[in-house]
Design a binder for these strands. Structure first.
Length: 533
RNA sequence: GACCCCGUAGCUCAAUGGAUAGAGCAAGGGUUUCCUAAACCUUAGAUGCAGGUUCGAUUCCUGCCGGGGUCACCA
C-alpha cells in the first residue's frame, strides 16, 4: 500500500483551503500556512510532531519517523516514486519540437524539443494519457521560395547547407517574393515538379532530424507535419465560410478576432493557404483523433499573437470542446551575444548539432569517455530546463557547456557517486529498520527534501515549469553532497558497534533513496543518469 | 505607435502574495592517508524608478525608464 502524501493528509486535517508551503527558514517547521482564522486549530498526532503559532503563521513540524519512513517508501516504489494517478482519465497532447524542413536544426528548436519532452514525461508520470506530436514545418510558402531557388540556380545540391544558403539568398531579393508564393501555390495544386523537389527536401531534412533526435535521446509519438493537413484545408475554409466566420479582405480570406487588431488569414489573395489554416485543421484533426482535455503548444513566445488568434478562431469555429484547455507555453528565445534574435532568414543561426558535439567533446576531455555523450547532452538539456520557460536565454558557449556547479553533470555526478557507494555497500542493507533513528543535522537536511519530490513533480507539471524540478534536484543533491562530505556512509564513527551498524543502515538507505529520486528526476527531465562517471 | 514577455549580486539565472530574496559562474581564503575533489567549506556582493492594493509585494495594479519579441499575404 502506498503511503498517503503528507501534504494531502495535512490539508485534509486543516480542513480549510490554505496555502501550505515549506518555510524558507528551516527553524520555522516543515510546513506552514498563514491564516487570520482563529478557528483553524491543528493538533499533534502520529504525523505531526509540533505545531506553533506565530502571529498568523501556523508552523508544523513532522514527526521524525514520518520523514525517515519516507525513505522506505522511496526504496519500495523505486522508479515509480514521485508519480501519481492524479491525471488518470485525462488526455493531453503536447505539440513540441517542430523543426523546419530544409533548415538546419538550429538552437532555436532546442527549447521546444527539450521542454516539450520534459512536460511529456511529467504529465505521464502524473497519470495523464499523453500524446506527443511533432508538428513539422514541412509545408508553406517557404517551400515555394526554395523550389524557385532550386529551379533558378539549377542546383542538384540538396544538402541542408545549400538549401539554407538558397533560402538566405532568396530573402535578399524582395522582388522574388511573388515567385515564391507562385511556386507554393503550384505545390499545393499538386504540380509534379514542385512535389518532387519538395520530397527531396523533406528526405534530407528528416535524415538530419533523426540524427539529432538520436543524439538527444528524444522520441516523439507522432509526427503529423503541416503537409499532412493539406487535403483538409478546403474543408476548414469551406466551414469558416459557411459559418460566416471568414470573410474577404483585400482579396484574402480572413477571420476578424474581437479585441485583436490584425485579423487571422486563412487564404492568401492568390488562393494559397497559410500556417493558420493548417493550425486550425490540426486542431480539428486532433480533436477528432485524440479528443484531448488539454493541448500544450510548446512553442516560442514570438508566436504569441498567432496562437491567441488561432485559439480564438478555433473557438468561433467550434473546434474546442467544453472544458478543453489550449495552452501556449510562450517560451523565451535564445538570443545572440548582442541580445538579439537569431535570424534564420539572414542565415544567422547556430546549429544544434555543433553545440551538442562540442558539449560531448568537453565532457570527454574532463573525464570518463564512456559517458561523455550522456554528460555533454545532459549539460545542454539541464541548462535549457533550469531557466524559467518564459525568460530569454543569452546564448553563451561557456555557460551552456557548464559541467560544474548548478548543472546537469553535477546531478549526474552525485548520482554516480551514490551508485558507487551502493555497489560497495548494498549488501549491508538487505534489512534495515529506520524507526527511531536520530538523524544528525546533515542527514536531517537531506531527509527533509526527500518527501517533497512528489509535490515538486506535480507542481512542475501543472505550472509547466520544469525549472522547478531542476531547482529541487539541485538542492537535494547539494544537501546530499554536504552530508557525503562530512560523514562516512559505509564506515560511520561511533562508540558502540551496534550503533555504528544502525547508522550505516540508515545512511545507506538514505543514500539509496536520494539516488532513486535524482535518477527519477533526471529521467523526467530527459537526462540520463549513468552509474559511473 | 499598439500588444505580449522580461528588468533581481560584476556576469548568467532561481524564488508558490509571506516571516532573514536563493544558486551557479567569476574573485579571495581553505579541505583529499577516508565511500568518485565534475565534490565540500568559507569571505564579499542584489529586487530599474515612482505610486497603489494588502496585516505582508521580487511576485498583483497604474505610470515611467531600459531590453527583447510581435503587429495579414514567413512559420
Amino acid at each position: 500500500m502506498a503511503q498517503r502524501p503528507v501534504r494531502e493528509y495535512l490539508l485534509e486535517k486543516i480542513g480549510k483551503v490554505v496555502k501550505l508551503e515549506h518555510p524558507e527558514i528551516e527553524k520555522r517547521g516543515d510546513y506552514s500556512f498563514y491564516t487570520t482564522d482563529k478557528d483553524v486549530m491543528i493538533k499533534e498526532d502520529e504525523v505531526i510532531e509540533k505545531v506553533e503559532r506565530v502571529g498568523g503563521f501556523v508552523n508544523i513540524w513532522l514527526k521524525n519517523d514520518v520523514l525517515v519512513n519516507q525513505i522506505d517508501e522511496v526504496i519500495r516504489r523505486g522508479q515509480q516514486y514521485g508519480g501519481s494517478t492524479g491525471g488518470s482519465g485525462k488526455r493531453v497532447i503536447i505539440d513540441y519540437s517542430a523543426p523546419n524542413i530544409a533548415k538546419p536544426f538550429g538552437i532555436g528548436h532546442l527549447r521546444s524539443t527539450i521542454i516539450g519532452q520534459a512536460l511529456y514525461n511529467l504529465y505521464k508520470f502524473c497519470g495523464w494519457d499523453v500524446v506527443g506530436d511533432n508538428h513539422l514545418g514541412d509545408w508553406g510558402t517557404q517551400f515555394g521560395k526554395l523550389i524557385f531557388m532550386i529551379k533558378n540556380t539549377d542546383t542538384a545540391d540538396y544538402s541542408i547547407d545549400n538549401l539554407e544558403k538558397l533560402y538566405v539568398e532568396f530573402h535578399k531579393h524582395a522582388e522574388w517574393e511573388d515567385e515564391g508564393r507562385k511556386w507554393f501555390k503550384k505545390l499545393e495544386e499538386g504540380d509534379a515538379e514542385a512535389k518532387e523537389i519538395w520530397e527531396k527536401c523533406v528526405k534530407v531534412s528528416m535524415a538530419e532530424f533523426d540524427r539529432i533526435y538520436e543524439l538527444l535521446g528524444v522520441k516523439i509519438d507522432a509526427a503529423f507535419g503541416e503537409s499532412f493537413y493539406e487535403d483538409m484545408m478546403i474543408g476548414v475554409i469551406e466551414e469558416a465560410k459557411r459559418k460566416g466566420v471568414m470573410h474577404e479582405s483585400e482579396g484574402a480570406g480572413v477571420i476578424e478576432i474581437p479585441g485583436i487588431k490584425t485579423p487571422l488569414m486563412l487564404l492568401k489573395s492568390d488562393g494559397g493557404t497559410t500556417y493558420a489554416t493548417r493550425d486550425l485543421a490540426t486542431l480539428k484533426f486532433r480533436r477528432e483523433k485524440w479528443d484531448p482535455d488539454m493541448v500544450i503548444y510548446e512553442v516560442g513566445a514570438e508566436q504569441g499573437l498567432h496562437f491567441e488568434q488561432v485559439f480564438a478562431a478555433a473557438n468561433m469555429l467550434g473546434y474546442i470542446k467544453e472544458g478543453e484547455r489550449l495552452v501556449h507555453t510562450k517560451h523565451g528565445l535564445y538570443l545572440d551575444m548582442d541580445g538579439k534574435k537569431f535570424a534564420t532568414r539572414k542565415g544567422k543561426t547556430i546549429k544544434l548539432e555543433e553545440v551538442l558535439e562540442e558539449a560531448i567533446e568537453r565532457a570527454r576531455k574532463l573525464g570518463n569517455t564512456d559517458q561523455a555523450q550522456a554528460v555533454g547532452i545532459g549539460a545542454i538539456k539541464y541548462f535549457d530546463l533550469m531557466h524559467s520557460v518564459q525568460s530569454n536565454i543569452v546564448f553563451d558557449w561557456e555557460k551552456m557547456m557548464n559541467l560544474q556547479g548548478n548543472s546537469g553533470p553535477y546531478l549526474q555526478y552525485t548520482h554516480a557517486r551514490i551508485e558507487s557507494v551502493i555497489r560497495q555497500g548494498g549488501k549491508l542493507m538487505e534489512r534495515y529498520n529506520l524507526s527511531n533513528y536520530r538523524v544528525n543535522k546533515e542527514e536531517e537536511r537531506v531527509v527533509k527534501m526527500i518527501y517533497r519530490f512528489g509535490e515538486v513533480v506535480e507542481e512542475s507539471a501543472s505550472r509547466l515549469a520544469p525549472n522547478l524540478l531542476c531547482g529541487y534536484l539541485f538542492e537535494l543533491a547539494q544537501r546530499f553532497n554536504t552530508f557525503y562530505n562530512k560523514h562516512s556512509i559505509l564506515t560511520p564513527t561511533g562508540a558502540a558497534e551496534e550503533e555504528r551498524g544502525r547508522t550505516r543502515e540508515f545512511r545507506l538507505a538514505m543514500t539509496k533513496a536520494t539516488g532513486i529520486i535524482i535518477r527519477n528526476g533526471l529521467t523526467l527531465l530527459g537526462i540520463e543518469a549513468p552509474g559511473r562517471m
